[in-house]
Structure formats: structure tokens, C-alpha cells
Nucleic acid binder design. Structure first.
Length: 115
DNA sequence: AACATGACGGTAG
DNA sequence: TCTACCGCCATGT
């Protein structure tokens, strides 16, 4: 690969690093990718992801913790089920508790939420 | 070629 | 605290 990694490639690499039971936001990913203002491009990249990518794109929510991309899984209940199966706490049927399960790409992958 | 839209985020009022 | 506007860039019409 002589060519440098594209913005989307960095997004995939970051999403692949999200620990199980944790979630992250578009802005965090965009920030790590070098363009904190291109959060929309993060969503666009995830929308292009296919199941063969094997990326935990269901662990990516917006800064409010809402499952904005629920319909991209066929139905919001699919994305919700995946997160619930990982032990991600929900504040509402379509909102997760970012205060507990948020994960920062720059931080080490710890599986224990702050007491 | 131009306009409108979108899995968003930040700042201003 | 909530609402509104802007910026960002690729895609579709």
C-alpha cells in the first residue's frame, strides 16, 4: 500500500478498536482521524460499511448517545439488541448511557466502567 | 453544473 | 436548557 490511508480507512481502523460493551461517538472518531469537523464523513464511511467488514459499527452513536443509524441495520431494534447483548446501559429505547459506556480512542481499552 | 440531503459537532443567541 | 445556524464533504437528483 503505497497510497496513504483514506479518511474512511482511519475510521474503520478506529471503529475496529472499540472494546466490547463500550461505545464511541462520531466526533471522537473524526477527531482521531485528524478532521474533528468532518464528523459527517464518519457517518458516511460507516454507511458504506458492509457486514463483511466485521466492524462494530453498532457501537458508534452520536454525541447524545442516540442510535441515529439504527435503520441502517434494517431496524433500530437490531442495533439496540447488539448493544444490549454487550451490556451497554440504555437511558431510553434508542439512547445509551454515554456517561458510563463511552470509549475514547486515545484512551487505553479498559472494560471496567468508572465506579 | 447547481441544489438539496445526510449514521454530526460546535458555537451563538 | 433549548433552539438555530454554520461548517464539512461526498452522493444523488
Amino acid at each position: 500500500m503505497s497510497a496513504p490511508p483514506s479518511f474512511a480507512d482511519r475510521v474503520y481502523a478506529t471503529v475496529a478498536r472499540i472494546p466490547r460493551g463500550r461505545v464511541t461517538t462520531f466526533g471522537r472518531i473524526a477527531r482521531v482521524c485528524g478532521d474533528p469537523r468532518s464528523a459527517r464523513m464518519v457517518g458516511w464511511a460507516l454507511a458504506a460499511v458492509v457486514d463483511e467488514q466485521r466492524l462494530p459499527c453498532h457501537r458508534v452513536v452520536n454525541r447524545h448517545g442516540f442510535l441515529t443509524g439504527g435503520w441502517h441495520f434494517g431496524h433500530p431494534d437490531v442495533m439496540r439488541g447488539l448493544l444490549l447483548a454487550e451490556g451497554v446501559p440504555f437511558l431510553e429505547d434508542d439512547q445509551v448511557d454515554l456517561a458510563v459506556c463511552v470509549w475514547e480512542p486515545d484512551d487505553l481499552d479498559d472494560d471496567g466502567p468508572p465506579d
